[in-house]
């Protein structure tokens, strides 16, 4: 994965596969603590303790189309390369929380990348799901909620290509205002 936003896209796809209705994506940057924390929370089907132990193993996957599953292992490897960690908490029927900490100023921390594009792909392809995105950086922040978007749009579908363009512009502008692309 070239950047953090692609990891987020990948992990969020797991949530969608787990039949989540609501997905929270949070990024918290703290320069003082030198941490860059990414959290993805869903209300999907969750995993048992046994499966939870296996998901960081590249040779484990829930798929039948191939025998490897690299999404979580790659995310974990990237986090650990910076001196950070990856933690997963899950309960069958309740959902899953995955949290990755990257050391903020570490040279191995990938850049954020095109997070607004990633959010747009997720929202556009899954208009029936509820997405929340919160990005905080040293006390400043930006929050996006697809329910609020839908309210502002009345009956216009959020997946309309023009509307997606507008939303992308809105996210990019707001994130640039809090300097997340640094």
């Amino acid at each position: 994965m070239k950047d953090l936003s692609l990891h987020i896209l990948d992990i969020a796809q797991n949530s969608i596969t787990a039949k989540a209705k609501s997905i929270f994506i949070g990024i918290e940057e703290d320069s003082a603590a030198n941490t860059y924390i990414i959290r993805v929370e869903d209300d999907g089907c969750g995993m048992s303790k046994e499966v939870l132990e296996l998901v960081t193993d590249p040779y484990y996957t829930s798929r039948t189309t191939r025998r490897v599953g690299l999404g979580i292992p790659l995310f974990k490897q990237n986090a650990e390369q910076t001196g950070g960690y990856l933690a997963i908490d899950s309960e069958p029927g309740r959902g899953t929380v995955i949290e990755a900490m990257f050391v903020h100023d570490n040279i191995d921390r990938p850049e954020l990348g095109d997070i607004s594009g990633v959010l747009l792909l997720l929202i556009g392809a899954n208009p029936e799901l509820h997405f929340r995105y919160v990005h905080r950086k040293d006390g400043q922040g930006y929050a996006l909620d697809t329910r609020e978007l839908q309210e502002a749009l009345d009956d216009m579908p959020v997946s309309n290509p023009n509307i997606l363009g507008y939303i992308k512009e809105m996210i990019t502008e707001n994130l640039a205002a809090i300097d997340v692309y640094q």
Binding site: E148, L149, E151, A152, L153, D154, M156, I163, Y166, I167, E169, M170, E173, N174
Partner: peptide, 13 residues
């Protein structure tokens, strides 16, 4: 002008 808020979004819509 750039779209910055939900109100701007509503207007464009």
């Amino acid at each position: 002008t750039k779209i910055k808020s939900l109100a701007d979004l509503r207007k464009k819509k």
